[in-house]
């Protein structure tokens, strides 16, 4: 097992959340540990609690019950603003600040932290290069002038700017075309490894989950049904639901192989 001996960067301990006016809890006694340096992918249907789980980790949401530990500290006593400046966050709608240049967007968190101007500028260039955008071409552009894929690269750079140890990603590739999506997800995995990050990524694309994850967590109706390596979940699904979830990409792959085989000239 990957867990066990290793230090856990993120721990959820019997956490429950009910939204105001919600009939049943959005999260129901969820416990989860993400070891340092690992990439956990949360999968499940819409409304299963994936995003709520993510928002608990940087205190965008405060739990009704249970504890959340980040880098060994219970975050109940931590100022949410300070916490968020130390955690990278990327989400599907990207949310670049439209009135700021690409460089200013990336510089936001370091500036809030009071980094010296020169360090901020150097960091912006370094990050643009890291996400594959030439600084001299892109730093002064406005977000509106970028393609969707370029915008999400800037979003990724902005999240990485203040050298966070933890990255939270909520369907980061959901709005991108398939080619860009594959390219960017491979780069995210590479960056994760290179920078030694601990990442929690939410998706409902099972193929993506299988390709990226060190660990996969399956959520349903506000509960964490099963956590484990992709191999473990494939081999020993906790119930029929989990089995069906993993059957799907396998069946699609087989169908695809058959289809391509039958196609003339291939």
């Amino acid at each position: 097992m990957l867990t066990g001996a290793m230090e856990s960067a993120i721990v959820l301990d019997e956490v429950s959340v009910t939204y105001p006016g919600g009939e049943r809890p959005a999260l129901d006694r969820v416990s989860l540990a993400v070891p340092e340096g690992r990439l956990l992918v949360l999968v499940g249907e819409s409304g299963s609690g994936k995003t709520t789980t993510l928002h608990l980790i940087n205190r965008l949401i405060v739990p009704d019950r249970g504890r959340v530990l980040v880098l060994g500290r219970d975050i109940a006593g931590v100022d949410g603003v300070a916490l968020r400046r130390g955690i990278g966050f990327v989400f599907q709608s990207i949310g670049l600040f439209p009135h700021m240049s690409v460089a200013a967007n990336i510089a936001v968190t370091p500036s809030l932290l009071g980094w010296p101007q020169d360090d901020v500028a150097a960091r912006v260039n370094e990050l643009l290069t890291l996400v594959g955008l030439a600084p001299e071409v892109f730093s002064r552009r406005s977000p509106a002038s970028l393609s969707g894929g370029q915008q999400q690269r800037v979003g990724l750079a902005r999240a990485l700017a203040a050298r966070p140890a933890i990255m939270l990603m909520d369907e980061p590739f959901g709005a991108l075309d398939p080619l860009t999506r594959d390219e960017l997800s491979a780069e995210v995995r590479a960056i994760h490894d290179r920078l030694g990050l601990t990442t929690v990524l939410v998706t409902h694309d099972m193929t993506e989950a299988l390709l990226l994850a060190d660990l996969i967590g399956v959520m349903r109706d506000g509960r964490l049904v099963q956590v484990g390596t992709p191999e473990a979940l494939l081999a020993r699904p906790a119930d029929d639901g989990v089995r069906a979830l993993f059957e799907h990409p396998r069946r699609r792959t087989e169908e695809l192989a058959r289809a391509l085989h039958l196609a003339p000239g291939v």
């Binding site: 940087n58 965008l60 603003v81 300070a82 968020r84 400046r85 130390g86 966050f89 989400f91 709608s93 990207i94 949310g95 670049l96 600040f97 936001v108 968190t109 809030l112 932290l113 902005r158 999240a159």
Partner: peptide, 8 residues
């Protein structure tokens, strides 16, 4: 959401 998430 982005403004909150970057720590404003």
């Amino acid at each position: 959401m982005a403004a909150r998430a970057v720590g404003m």
